[in-house]
Write a protein that binds this DNA or RNA. Structure first.
Lengths: 235, 235
DNA sequence: TCAAGACTGTCGAGAACACGACACTCACGC
DNA sequence: GCGTGAGTGTCGTGTTCTCGACAGTCTTGA
């Protein structure tokens, strides 16, 4: 399983027929967002839809005690807030920019108008929703059954697929939150992976040295999720 | 938080305006299914949509090694396979009848024809999809963060909400699968709950003795999921 | 240049759960 | 009534991860 070529453009937008894309494009604004930027919290009305070209947005489920754990991610193969194209919706998750993000943004109401006129967009939205659901239910199983090391590797691979470098900026503290484990556990796993020569890391930065090895250490969930996206969105 | 009144009829169907319901009703077949009945496996084309009146269907994510863990459930507040009303779809999960089930069933193509004509049905399908997604992402967090006891209680409560008795037929072995833990762990938790006077159990049967106590022992996820359904579907 | 803060390393006790093994007992069909 | 099989009880070992604490180190900005 090769790493897919980093996508210069959002593949949902690219999948639209030109005439439908033209309707969307009128209202698209190209933006760049820094790491850590908070886009939505649970309960927020979804007023904009984001189509990433390069980078990752994490969707996190918030608990009462403030814990926030990743339930799915959005990259160039998908879009953030896309269900708001169908009807006004409130966000169920916290959405946070994971890596520096280039994206196209459109107002939810504008997109809804296009949705009204474009069967192709409606079909894409439906498929995307299903793929995102598939991502979530695989994560349910993964969190219950698989080791922190396997999930750590899955997280790195998923991130690596969606950016254009072999370097990911993230702290162990942050990754511990994503995975829902203690920071000390992440430290131990990271050190073990570094000793195996799979990754190299320093303050707030992880370098992916041996992607092949990562794929050997992660669980099946990585492939299952990728296949679901490919089958439904051909991306 | 009181247990909701057991629903005699599927509340999605009841939420349809009479004229739209009439379109669906022509093709509805009332059925009863025994516990353990397999309705879908991953990859199966979704040829029928089920609207439970009473009972629970488990959606389980299958792993390569045969492990099957519950990612969401369907009861009288929802429907199984509803995304197939929009377009032909393959199941992502294994769907298994959890408790004796009374339901109404309709061919996916028939339902799609109604979907084409009924804005109310389209809206319901969209809301249901979102609620199911919400169920899944809460389960992601729950499996990563909460104890087996809390998840055990959540499972019982969710089941209790959707049936009309205080008795649930299930083996500890089966529940261990649902929760993705060892059978011996379930045995220990069940014994502890029985000693606290919360449940009583015997071979293959669990009686819910003190629902209030169950609610005190479960995690916030139970309430969050219920609220999501209520907000989106008013059920 | 120095202080403050952010990030990482490490330790140790303890809880939670996995995993395998085996004995027991209840229910059902013959 | 009896055997068979499914379901449960229990034990013990071992691993994984939690949780709190504190020390060390890099980075940044004043």
């Amino acid at each position: 399983m090769q790493r897919p070529v980093p996508l210069a453009q959002n593949s949902l937008l690219e999948a639209l027929p030109p005439s439908d894309y033209a309707l969307v494009a009128q209202n698209l604004v190209q933006i760049e967002l820094e790491r850590g930027r908070l886009l939505y919290d649970p309960g927020d009305p979804i007023d904009h839809v984001y189509f990433p070209h390069d980078g990752v947005v994490s969707l996190m489920t918030l608990m009462e005690n403030g814990a926030a754990i990743e339930s799915a991610t959005i990259g160039p193969e998908g879009a953030l807030g896309l269900m708001a194209a169908v009807a006004p919706r409130l966000s169920l998750s916290r959405a946070i920019v994971q890596t520096p993000l280039r994206a196209a943004r459109i107002g939810a109401e504008r997109l809804h108008e296009v949705w009204d006129r474009s069967p192709a967009l409606r079909d894409l939205v439906d498929r995307h929703t299903e793929a995102l659901y598939g991502h979530a239910i695989q994560s349910v199983a993964c969190n219950a059954l698989h080791s922190v090391e396997a999930r750590f590797c899955r997280w790195l691979l998923t991130c690596h697929d969606r950016i254009s470098t072999d370097t990911v900026a993230l702290t162990q503290e942050f990754l511990a939150d994503m995975l829902g484990v203690q920071r000390t556990t992440v430290t131990a796993v990271a050190r073990s992976l570094q000793e195996k020569g799979v990754i190299r890391y320093r303050r707030g930065v992880v370098d992916i040295v041996d992607r092949q090895a990562l794929q050997g250490l992660t669980c099946e969930c990585y492939g299952v999720i990728r296949n679901t996206y490919t089958r439904l969105l051909g991306a």
